[in-house]
Computed example of a mutant assay.
Amino acid sequence: MIQSSRTPNGYREYRDEMVQLVGLIGTAKRLGFSLAEVGDHLPALWATAEPDAAVAALLREKVRVIDARITDLGRLRDDLLARLDMICPLQRAARQRTHGLSSHLP
């Protein structure tokens, strides 16, 4: 996708659009987009007549994904905190073996 030409001395020469494209990819990476996501969306963004609206839609979707992940992580955190005061099932099984009780966990 990134194209260049060579000068007579062998240096690569990039068109201004290609330099802009590399900058866009770097910005997208810093904003949490994977290279796969960039690759999936970039051709359409590059070709659209309304890039501002298209980028805004992608950013809104990324925020939605991040919010969902934050919610999931909050639930995971709460679950972990709730388990701090519980007896470990492995310890319970060891106690049962020591006292000759059934080793089936409830």
Rank of each mutant, 00 (worst) to 15 (best):
M86V: 11
R60E: 15
L58V: 13
R83P: 00
V19Q: 01
A68P: 04
R64Q: 10
G100V: 00
E37Q: 13
A53C: 01
A44W: 01
R30D: 12
T27I: 08
I70L: 13
T7C: 04
S4L: 01
I25N: 04
E61H: 09
L59G: 01
A49R: 01
K62M: 08
S4I: 06
E13N: 07
L21E: 14
T71L: 02
R6W: 08
M18N: 05
W46G: 05
A68Q: 15
K62G: 10
V22Q: 12
T27L: 09
A68I: 03
Q20N: 04
A47M: 14
E50S: 05
H41M: 01
Y14V: 08
L90Q: 03
R77M: 03
R95P: 01
K29P: 01
F33P: 03
I70C: 00
D72V: 02
M1Q: 03
E50A: 15
I66W: 10
R6M: 13
L45F: 03
L105T: 09
R15W: 06
L42C: 09
P89R: 05
L101I: 05
S34E: 13
G74I: 03
P51V: 12
E61I: 00
V63A: 08
V65P: 01
N9I: 00
R30F: 02
A57W: 00
T27H: 00
R60Q: 14
Y11T: 04
R64A: 13
R97H: 05
T7S: 15
D40L: 11
L80D: 05
L42Q: 05
A36Y: 00
H99Y: 11
N9L: 11
L90A: 13
G74D: 03
A47R: 15
I25P: 00
G74M: 10
R92K: 12
Q96F: 13
L101E: 08
D16F: 05
L76P: 03
S4M: 11
A94C: 06
C88G: 14
A36K: 15
S102T: 13
L45I: 10
A28L: 02
Q20H: 09
R75H: 07
D40Y: 04
A36V: 10
G100W: 01
M18L: 01
A44I: 07
P8I: 10
E37G: 11
S5V: 04
V55L: 09
S102M: 15
V22R: 03
M1C: 11
T48S: 12
V63Y: 07
L35S: 07
R75W: 09
R97D: 11
L81N: 08
D72A: 15
L35Q: 14
R64P: 06
P43I: 03
W46C: 08
S5Q: 05
V63R: 15
G10H: 15
V22K: 03
R97E: 12
V19S: 00
Y14D: 04
T71F: 07
L24K: 02
K29Y: 04
T27Y: 12
E17F: 11
S103N: 09
I66R: 11
I70P: 00
S34N: 12
H104E: 04
A47Y: 08
R95Y: 14
L105C: 12
R15Y: 09
R97S: 13
V63K: 11
V55N: 07
H41R: 10
S103E: 03
H99S: 08
A49M: 14
A28Q: 00
G26M: 01
